[in-house]
Amino acid sequence: MTRTPDSRAIEEGLTAGLRDKALAAILNSNRALFEDYGTTDQLDTMMAAIAASPGVRDAWKMSRP
């Protein structure tokens, strides 16, 4: 961290209110970063997992894509 996150930054980083479309868009819009680190397979699997488990926000309830 370059500095202590303020309350605005933390609020903007909260995830519970993200719908599937928004969650997927955040990940997919950073595809170039995943490519840089050779992790596009993991990105694609996460995207498929979101699609396979609509609305699910508990890891133990996620369906394997």
Binding site: G13, L23, I26, L33, Q42, A48, A49
Partner: peptide, 15 residues
Amino acid sequence: LHWREPWVMAQMLLM
């Protein structure tokens, strides 16, 4: 990067 927890990376990217 685990497919069961896609929200973790989402938060890291948001911040």
